Each structure stands twice: as structure tokens, then as C-alpha cells.
Simulated assay, not measured.
Amino acid sequence: MIFDVLWRRPLLQRPAPTATASTPDGVFVHERSTRLVCLDPADGVARWDVPVGTWPRAVVADGPQCWVISQDRNELRCLDVRSGEVHWSVDLPRFTAHIVVAGDRVLVGGWRGYTALRAFDRWTGALLWAERHRAATVLPAAVGERVLVGEPGGSSVRLLDVRDGTEVCRWSLPEPLVGGDGQWQAFVAAGPDRFLLRCGARTLWQVNPGAGTAGEFFRHDRDLAATGISTVGALVWARERHRGAVALDLTPREFRGRVSVGPDVVGQVVPAAAGHVLATGRPGMLLLVDDAGRPRERRLVDQQIGGLRPLMPGVLLVAGKGTLLAVDAATPTA
């Protein structure tokens, strides 16, 4: 049946979005207060288990490498995804957070404006450049060998060349940039060279870094939630404040439908074989809807859900209450 739990991993702590990463080859999650484990996506069995310190500010996996910044160690550590072996580590200023991989560079810093942005060679850990001054940014987004950055509540978005930190382009925003604390993406990819972001209370803005253009994508007649832009195929989902979510066509930019599930929708909308999946926080319910937002299936999978993301084709990774779950999203109900 759809939404059957395939495996469940007790973490003995609350799963944090910044302390969890996944690729088709592994799930990397912080658990038991000080450990980072790599789980097999198919069965949840631990492949390796290493000490990394308390409450990572960021965990990111890309290709053969996994990077982690631990709160109590003030260092960036690069691990081998197959063995957990440390390839290299570098000291960082206190309160460094955000990790973004762009080409052969790893960019860190800018979280809450505590530290300057700095870039390291992904293979050796050599420092390549660092900005002189501290600057706050939402979680940056990689665009090839460039990155999008923007200050939460700010009036502009910048495109930086990650090879040397120079500014390539800057766009003014009509309303303040809505950004989080690194727990979610402020820049959401909507194609190979197109990103969506929130401005003000009701506006979705788009930036096309390759073309150097930006403009309004959609303005809603109701307030939108701070989090929750998702792109699923040819649709964009945007969470409404205290209501549910709306579906929009990417091209043309038209309203498609609405799903009303109350104020407790969490995380992103993710694809399933027969539609789209939303989650509610309490109780931890998964809801399958069609392109117009019409409910098709629903199932309680945990006491509480903190977020979900695609793991493998037909499988979702769900952050529960002190657990991590893999859930079937492909098998139709008999």
C-alpha cells in the first residue's frame, strides 16, 4: 500500500533538517547527540558511524564526499561517503554555518551574519578566498560555479563567482527577501537556470542567472507562508499561511488548484507515482493529492512529522518524532 513504512531508524534525538543529507547512495544523519551515521537507503542499516560533535550546523553530501560543521568543534570536516574516513578538516570561526558545494568549491559562512563567506577547495580543504566583512545571507544556491546569495529581509539578490568571490550580477527586489535560518531553501530551483524566491507577504519572484534577468512570477491574493516553495515536474507548490497550499503551472504561470489541510502543513511538497505528497506536523499524516490539489489518499505514519524529501524513485524520507523513516510513495492502494 502507498505510504507503507519501509524502515524506521530511532535517532534518540529530534531530527534536524540541517543535520540530515541524502543522496541515492546514502542517508547521512546526526543521532545520539554526537554521532553521524550513513544509512543504506534501501533498508536503513548503518554502514558507518563516526563521532562529529554536537548538533551540526550543516551536513551536506555530494558525490563521494560528505561535509559537516559541528557546533562545538568549529571546524569543517570532509568525510568519505563510503567509509566515513576524514579526508581533511579545517578550523572555522565560531558560529559558522551554511555549506554549499559549487563545482570544485565548498562555500561556508553568512549564517545570521556571524561570519564572512569563505570558499575551500573541495578535494584538499585549501582556503581559496574569504570576504573581508561579515554579511548575512539565506542559504546560498549553487548555479554551476556561481552562487546566489541574499540577506534575509534585504532588498537585493547577488550572484557571486565562487572561484574568487567577485560579484557577477545584482538584482533589486520589490519587497524584502523572505529567508529562513538555514533550515530550508530560500532559492528553489525551477529548471537548469531559473530560481524562485519569496518577496514580501504574497509574491513569488524569479531569477534567471544565465540571462541576468529577474521579475515577478506570481502574486497571490492571500498571504503565503514563509517556507514551502516546491517544484514538482511542471508545477510549483506554495504554502499559504494558515490554510494549505496552492499549485501553479511553471509555464504558463497560471493558478492550477488548491489543497486545504489547515495550518499544520510542513516541509516541501514532493512527487509520488500517482501525484504529489504533503505532510502535516501533528499528527504526522501524509496526504496524496492530484495536480489540482484534490485529496486521493492519506495515512498516519508517525506522531509528528518535521519534514520530508524524496529519497529514491518511489520512496520518501520522513523526519518523524525522534526517528527517520523511509516511506513507500509508489505502490497504489490495493
Rank of each mutant, 00 (worst) to 15 (best):
G110I: 07
T54I: 10
T251Y: 04
W55A: 15
V81M: 03
D291P: 00
F120R: 00
T280R: 11
C199I: 09
A225M: 04
V138T: 12
W205N: 11
H276R: 03
R282W: 07
G306F: 08
A189L: 03
F255C: 02
G113I: 14
V100E: 04
P15E: 09
A214M: 05
T227A: 15
V50P: 11
V318R: 08
V269I: 15
K321A: 15
L92Q: 08
D121I: 02
W205H: 14
R194C: 12
G113V: 06
A201L: 07
L159C: 13
P15A: 09
G144R: 07
W55E: 14
T166S: 14
D161T: 13
F95E: 13
G182I: 02
L278E: 08
R163L: 11
P295H: 10
R163N: 13
A238E: 06
V5T: 15
A116R: 12
R105F: 09
E31C: 13
P10W: 12
V86F: 04
G180V: 12
S89E: 00
G233Y: 10
P209G: 11
P152A: 09
D72M: 11
G182V: 05
A211F: 04
S260F: 06
L12I: 07
G262Q: 07
D4I: 08
R77Y: 01
V318Y: 09
G165C: 05
W67F: 15
G53D: 11
C199H: 04
E167K: 04
H220N: 14
G165R: 06
L127W: 06
L278Q: 10
Q13D: 13
A214I: 10
C199L: 06
G84K: 03
A189Y: 03
L127K: 12
D25P: 01
L173A: 01
R122L: 01
G113W: 12
D161N: 14
A319V: 08
R105V: 14
R298C: 04
W55H: 10
W205S: 10
S172V: 07
E175N: 02
R299K: 14
G215A: 06
T280H: 05
V327A: 10
R298L: 14
R243T: 15
A116C: 02
D249T: 10
Y114W: 15
G125D: 12
A245I: 06
G150L: 05
P332R: 11
T323Q: 09
S22M: 13
A141K: 03
V277Y: 07
G210C: 09
L160R: 10
L250Q: 05
V178K: 05
L159W: 08
G103H: 02
L12Y: 11
G215R: 03
P51E: 15
A142E: 11
S22Y: 01
P17A: 03
E167M: 04
G314A: 15
G153K: 00
W88C: 01
S155A: 13
P176E: 08
L39I: 01
F120P: 02
D72E: 00
D40M: 01
A319Q: 13
F187K: 06
L250K: 05
